Simulated scan of single mutants.
Amino acid sequence: MKCLLFYKPYGVLCQFTDNSADGGSRKTLKDYIKIPGVYSVGRLDLDSEGLLLLTDNGRLKHHLGHRKFAHPRTYWVQVERIPNDQDLDKLRSGIQIKDYRTRRAQVKLLEREPELPPRIPPIRDRKNVPTCWLEITLTEGRNRQVRRMTAAIGFPTLRLVRVAISIKVAQKKDPKSQFYSFGLDSLQPGEYRELTATEKQIIQGLF
Results as ranks from 00 to 15, higher is better:
38 V>P: 02
85 D>G: 00
151 A>E: 14
61 K>F: 00
55 T>F: 05
138 L>N: 06
123 I>E: 13
56 D>R: 05
141 G>Q: 09
93 S>Q: 14
106 Q>D: 15
103 R>M: 13
63 H>G: 02
36 P>Y: 07
135 E>K: 15
54 L>N: 07
44 L>N: 09
79 V>A: 02
75 Y>H: 01
123 I>R: 11
129 V>H: 09
76 W>Q: 12
136 I>C: 09
122 P>H: 14
117 P>F: 11
101 R>D: 02
153 I>T: 12
25 S>E: 15
148 R>Y: 03
71 H>I: 09
54 L>G: 08
62 H>W: 05
71 H>C: 04
109 L>S: 03
47 D>H: 12
74 T>I: 07
90 K>L: 15
111 E>Y: 02
64 L>Q: 09
131 T>Y: 10
109 L>Y: 01
92 R>G: 01
61 K>N: 12
80 E>W: 13
117 P>W: 05
55 T>K: 04
48 S>E: 09
144 R>Q: 07
42 G>D: 13
48 S>R: 07
36 P>Q: 06
58 G>L: 06
116 L>P: 00
70 A>P: 01
106 Q>G: 08
55 T>M: 05
58 G>K: 03
96 Q>G: 01
102 T>Y: 09
152 A>Y: 10
107 V>T: 07
141 G>L: 05
136 I>K: 10
31 D>F: 00
106 Q>F: 07
124 R>E: 13
145 Q>C: 04
56 D>F: 02
31 D>W: 01
109 L>V: 02
116 L>F: 03
67 R>K: 15
34 K>F: 15
141 G>M: 03
142 R>Y: 05
120 I>N: 15
150 T>G: 08
48 S>N: 07
28 T>L: 08
